[in-house]
Design a protein around this nucleic acid. Structure first.
Lengths: 152, 152
DNA sequence: TAATAATGTTAGACAAATCTAATTTTCGCA
DNA sequence: TGCGAAAATTAGATTTGTCTAACATTATTA
């Protein structure tokens, strides 16, 4: 029932959400620049997004997200946050790289894995401090078992 | 200069390598089953792989990897190993899921991130034992700095 | 306000990856 | 050995995402 939207379209959607927040209106040219593609490709993507009911689109008019589009973005941006956090906190990448890589991965890493990254972050007490003494991977396995059932 | 091959073609290539090891010859039908697609799609993929010089292919004949194809596979299977190891060891996923997810991710996660996962595995002394007492994320950052320069 | 520049869309092409249906080749065995 | 089934390929269509070039619309500004 839930029409899954492709990675490329998801990216368009995110850029739209971001531009909407920052500038109110969303223009084809801005999207083209952000996506690193031609304006005509943007138009084509907008038409497909519109057909899927994720954006409000009429020729030559600024674009806005539908409620459906907003919902899609919310899940995605949570995935993005978790990935970026994991990359920066656990793998010790600089923030900028973490953000870029999260952009690429958020469409590809399974929900299951992303959720587990969040559990890992929780476990190492990322909120409290940036280091975790007495970290034990055996303990983490226990922790995981107690918090989740899938995928095993 | 290095013709980058798509994720889908990479998957075909891997299945070819695996089938070659296990059965000597590689048949279209087996590939179709492994890839979960129709035989005609396999034929089309084989033709593209052949054009890129990664396999030896002639109509109605069994397929083999070229030296070039072997090289591609070697890098890929190293990525696969690291990803699966990371998923199982760090994120505590069961081996089977780790393998499946690694299959999906090996074509998508940047080389940089995969290498960093290996560094992380090295750091927590995965080889020695399955737990690391006194693990400190600050220390890991230092460790990373001492081992690598990119991406910052 | 009318010409020009910028912006946006359409038309038409292409490549990747897939499908179904039809055809061709190979193989097993009677 | 030759026939029928299995395997492989081709032909032709579809979808996604992209491009260039041409055209349409909107905006700027002299």
């Amino acid at each position: 029932m839930k029409e899954r939207v492709s990675g490329a379209l998801e990216s368009y959607l995110e850029q739209i959400a971001d531009l909407q927040q920052k500038h109110g209106a969303v223009r084809t040219s801005d999207l083209a620049e952000r996506m690193g593609c031609k304006r005509s490709s943007v138009t084509s993507a907008l038409q497909r997004l519109s057909e899927k009911g994720l954006i409000n689109y009429q020729s030559y008019r600024p674009v806005t997200l539908t409620a459906e589009g907003q919902k899609t973005i919310q899940a995605l941006s949570r995935y993005h946050r978790i990935l970026a956090d994991f990359l920066a906190t656990v793998l010790a990448f600089p923030e900028e790289f973490a953000q870029q890589e999260a952009c690429r991965l958020e469409h590809r890493v399974s929900q299951c894995t992303i959720e587990r990254m969040q559990v890992y972050l929780d476990f190492i007490g990322h909120a409290g401090k940036n280091s975790a003494k007495d970290f034990d991977f055996g303990l983490f396995k226990e922790f995981v078992k107690s918090k989740t059932d899938k995928p095993a």
